[in-house]
Computed example of a mutant assay.
Amino acid sequence: MTGKTHIIGGITASLAFAQVTNYEPVILVGASIIGAIIPDICHGGSKIGRTLPMLSKVINGLFGHRTFTHSLLFLVLISFIMDAFISVEAISAGVLVGMASHIVLDMATKRGVKFFFPFKWTVRFPVTATTGGTSEYVVFALLSLLTVYFGYGLFLPL
């Protein structure tokens, strides 16, 4: 998936998550946008990879693309790091929701992810989308509609 799809996925997931928690939605959304791009630090052409090229190159050299940074292990590691250094729970929750949405969206591609890294098992959905293709635009449109739906429920209650 492309960066814009990951970002809208993070926004959608954080707004849905805000429906069932007491966290401030604006904080969740902001943190989720950041979380939604973090897993692609392993790809030099990604939004975050272009922002932090040296770190991206090192991570890609050590692990490759869609392995460690797209795994349950990485989610747990980031969770422990944020628990130790971030005192605002809504920020930690938002980052993790954004990262999880990123990984789930990449599971919907033909390439899938190595979710159980260091095991080399590829996890992907039975029906996949092509990155940058028509199917991704359909996913983007659906996520956009869900963003409006969940945002309306939070910001414009009846």
Rank of each mutant, 00 (worst) to 15 (best):
S46P: 01
K47E: 08
T21Q: 05
K114M: 14
F63P: 01
T109D: 04
L52N: 01
E89I: 12
H70D: 06
I78N: 02
I33Y: 02
L75I: 00
I33M: 09
Y23W: 10
G98Y: 00
V20P: 08
M107T: 08
T131I: 15
I48Y: 01
E89S: 14
V88S: 08
G94K: 08
S46Q: 02
R50W: 00
I103N: 06
T51A: 15
L105V: 07
S101D: 03
S87V: 12
V29S: 13
A90V: 12
S46W: 00
L55T: 15
A93T: 09
A100P: 02
G94A: 04
M54Y: 12
E89T: 14
L77T: 08
S56R: 02
L105Q: 06
G61K: 05
I48D: 04
S79H: 01
L105F: 07
T109H: 05
K57A: 11
V76F: 09
F125Q: 05
V95K: 01
A84Y: 11
W121D: 14
G45P: 02
L105N: 11
T122D: 12
F125A: 13
A84G: 03
I48H: 00
M54E: 03
K57C: 05
G98W: 06
F85L: 15
G112N: 11
I38Q: 02
D83E: 11
T69P: 10
S79I: 00
M99P: 04
P25L: 14
I91Q: 10
K120V: 07
E24H: 14
V95M: 07
G30Y: 09
G44K: 13
L55R: 11
A90M: 11
T51L: 15
S46R: 02
F68N: 00
L28I: 09
F68Y: 05
M99A: 02
N22C: 04
G132W: 07
H43W: 11
S92L: 05
I103W: 06
G64S: 02
V58C: 04
T122L: 12
P126A: 06
Q19D: 09
L55A: 15
I38C: 01
V123C: 11
L72V: 13
I78L: 06
S79W: 04
G49P: 03
G132V: 10
S46E: 02
E89M: 14
F119Y: 14
V97H: 04
G30V: 08
D40Y: 09
T69M: 07
F68T: 00
R124C: 09
I103M: 03
G94C: 05
I91K: 09
G30Q: 10
L105W: 02
I86N: 01
R111C: 04
C42H: 13
P118A: 11
I34R: 06
T122G: 08
